[in-house]
């Protein structure tokens, strides 16, 4: 708890501080008594199983639906976020899980929606130029910005949604499963981007099911379980085991059992065969058995190494099994050169 970054985050006041936030939909208590702090220059990963309430938390911050109880403090002031406009004006930019793009409008139109240049005489040229600049920064593979968003692939739409959030100058960026639909290179670009945002002193909340992504960029991990806080961990101090236990609510569960199985399988044959059994499922879960041995250590180099390359660079961690569901690119690390 007393690392350098810990000192920084503990001295400065958090950009966002939520206390006692609750939200229910009819009889379903989606969120109960949630507390969450995010500091400037900090990436907080928000993890939890499906239905844990992550997206609901995001939507409260984005003004999509206001909370039933609790306080939100932003930039030192208690705020009430009733509408998306409130959220945007505070400096919160959100990339929604369901993206929220207008299919009938072009890429440029979507990027600048709600903040068009020249309200009475749209400056289409300037908007298009800025769009290209922004999309190039994200290494977006979008053939034309003058085509309707409907004709883009899932990953391209995701990139447009992320690019959207960067326009304007937000203080807090919320990414709800930003890499879920992305390819290898694009995932790396998004993780790169998240690191750049942190370097620029922005606060970032990133939701992800991918433990590799989380470990690659997060400073802290906040776990939600069944709509309640289930621990906040400093990335450096926590093992994937502990995280998964916090997410699933038990140390003995399907994930660890499965990890134990594949761990045994890996031990039985050469380590290399554990990867090819492809379906091995939840990323980073198999690593739970082995990764525990060298928790934080692998992360250090993983970030830069994984980010650096132009394409196929999204295999951050050094663990062998982590590659189980990654396509191609044969990044079988240590064991790879044994046979």
């Amino acid at each position: 708890m007393s690392t350098v970054s810990a000192e920084r985050t503990e001295t400065a006041a958090p950009v966002l501080s939520m206390r006692g936030v609750s939200k229910h939909f009819g009889a379903v208590a989606a969120l109960t008594d949630i507390a969450l702090d995010v500091h400037a220059g900090e990436v907080v990963a928000l993890v939890g199983d499906n239905g844990a309430g992550k997206s609901t938390l995001v939507k409260i911050l984005a003004g999509v639906h206001p909370q039933d109880a609790g306080t939100v403090n932003f930039d030192g002031k208690d705020v009430t976020i009733h509408t998306p406009v409130d959220s945007i004006q505070l400096g919160i930019a959100t990339v929604f899980q369901d993206l929220a793009l207008c299919d009938n409008l072009t890429v440029v139109d979507n990027l600048f929606l709600g903040r068009e240049l020249g309200p009475w005489r749209l400056n289409e040229v300037e908007m298009e130029v800025q769009s290209w600049k922004l999309l190039r920064q994200l290494s977006a593979k979008i053939p034309s910005v003058r085509i309707a968003v409907a004709s883009l692939s899932g990953g391209q739409r995701q990139t447009v949604a992320i690019a959207r959030s960067l326009l304007g100058s937000p203080k807090l960026i919320i990414l709800d499963e930003p890499t879920a639909a992305l390819g290898v290179a694009q995932t790396a670009e998004v993780l790169n981007l998240v690191e750049r945002l942190r370097e620029n002193g922005l606060a970032v909340i990133m939701i992800s099911h991918n433990m590799q992504d989380v470990q690659a960029v997060a400073d802290r991990v906040a776990v939600l379980r069944l709509g309640k806080n289930n621990g906040t961990f400093r990335m450096k101090d926590v093992s994937t085991d502990d995280l998964i236990a916090a997410i699933t609510g038990a140390t003995d569960n399907v994930v660890t059992q499965r990890a134990a199985q594949s761990g045994a399988a890996a031990a039985a044959s050469t380590a290399g065969t554990a990867g090819p059994d492809g379906t091995a499922g939840p990323d980073g879960t198999t690593r739970a058995s082995e990764g525990a041995a060298e928790p934080g250590a692998a992360d250090g180099p993983a970030g830069p190494a994984g980010m650096g390359g132009p394409g196929g660079g999204s295999m951050p961690p050094g663990q062998p099994d982590g590659n189980a569901d990654q396509p191609g690119s044969g990044a079988v690390p240590e064991e790879g050169n044994v046979p």
């Binding site: 999509v64 998306p84 959100t94 793009l101 207008c102 009938n104 929606l113 709600g114 309200p119």
Partner: peptide, 25 residues
């Protein structure tokens, strides 16, 4: 076609919720 209002009109017609989340009233 050339004003922010017009763009918002198309946005609301295309995806009302997306328009709302983009900060359009």
């Amino acid at each position: 076609t050339r004003t922010q209002w017009g763009r918002s009109v198309y946005a609301v017609g295309g995806n009302r919720e997306a328009a709302r989340r983009a900060g359009i009233s």
